[in-house]
Design a protein around this nucleic acid. Structure first.
Lengths: 214, 214
DNA sequence: AGCTTTAGCTATGGCTATTAGCCTTAGCTG
DNA sequence: CAGCTAAGGCTAATAGCCATAGCTAAAGCT
């Protein structure tokens, strides 16, 4: 038994419990957003679900926007992870780019409330904090790296690795997510009226930046 | 003088005044949305601006969502008109398609709050009514016609006029609007970090559906 | 065992949308 | 032109929201 508390310097039990509660709040928040839309999050509703009074939530998050901020950060991390994991399983170059991007899109379609938070500006008073935005830059950098990799492998024209190329790819990704979430929500990635065209979208990008004549 | 009321059967003056007030409400609503984001519309704020009490607004709109609905309808009509007017000035076929689409995108970027209402789902409890949605279908049909025209002129592969082609084009348009409004708002269409790539986006679509070898 | 911190509570304030009901007057109609 | 109708404003009130202040009990660290 003594072994169970071996690695804890100060305030371990409390810290753990606190982290668990925060996680529960975010989990419920995401559920409510799924039902009401990203902008429809209500602290009162979260509290009701948890069986506590609304002001008690302020022990964990300093405001409603702080909850949004935490969700934004979580979403960015998950999106970035999806990109990475998708790309890892594929050969370097274009396959890695396409696998990563596809995995990212799949994640977005499967997590509508978080994706709305990342891709849209659905909450009036809320803009992500600098810390929460950091993973967003990481995701952007990751995509840039994948594009650069495809160019390096000779799979895409070098222009793909310019601002134009990266921004164009961003437009394509945002387009798939936006159309799918706004006009055909609740459908799985593979069947989604828009997300199912992900391969066609990638093909368009490829055709726009064909590899230099070998 | 008699001529001024000639063509009015019943309640003309009142009807006119009422219409003007409704229009003023919508105009102010759009202004407020521009400042706060589409989801941040407040009837109280509208009333304050007009110098009346909030409940008085209910004489003109039955609810906050009814205001959104009217704005949605107005936006769809304006977007559809932009498409039409853009296409009219260009030769039929691909030029008309690209001119129409470009004009539509320009309109969207220049009218952020209405565009958000059309392309995203930024308001929790609101879904457009059937009547307000009708012009949306008209806009979709208009784009479909333009695509069909370009195919008919031999400027695009017939596959462009399939569901995939139309949906792909929708993805591209939504992508430009989404990225521009979410990540570089307030910049003009020509300079927008994403909207300036509209020609590249259209080129990608063209390359994806090259005309049959003549 | 004692003390500190945590995590809950209630009460309160100020905002919101919405409903009900009143009242004045603009302006239509006989 | 006189009278009536209804349009368009108002106040009051309900129910919900976020947020702050301050209290209390117990959890758990030392």
């Amino acid at each position: 038994m003594a072994s169970t508390h071996a690695a804890a310097p100060g305030g371990d039990r409390r810290r753990q419990r606190r982290a668990a509660t925060k996680a529960e709040i975010l989990r419920i928040a995401a559920e409510l957003m799924a039902a009401e839309g990203a902008g429809g999050l209500s602290l009162s509703a979260i509290a009701r679900r948890m069986g506590i009074q609304p002001p008690s939530l302020y022990k964990y998050f300093s405001s409603r926007n702080a909850v949004y901020d935490a969700l934004f950060a979580e979403g960015q991390r998950a999106f970035s992870a999806a990109l990475r994991e998708g790309a890892e399983g594929a050969p370097p170059g274009l396959p890695a780019l396409e696998a990563g991007v596809t995995a990212g899109l799949r994640w977005a379609v499967e997590h509508p409330p978080l994706a709305q938070l990342l891709f849209w500006r659905p909450v009036p008073g809320f803009t992500p904090s600098a810390e929460s935005y950091a993973p967003a830059l990481e995701a952007v950098g990751r995509i840039a790296d994948l594009v650069a990799g495809a160019v390096h492998e000779g799979h895409l024209h070098p222009d793909a690795a310019t601002d134009e190329g990266r921004e164009l790819l961003g437009v394509l990704l945002a387009g798939v997510v936006t159309q799918q979430l706004a006009n055909d929500p609740g459908t799985a990635f593979a069947e989604g009226r828009f997300s199912r065209h992900t391969p066609a979208v990638l093909r368009a990008f490829r055709l726009h930046y064909p590899p230099p004549a070998a």
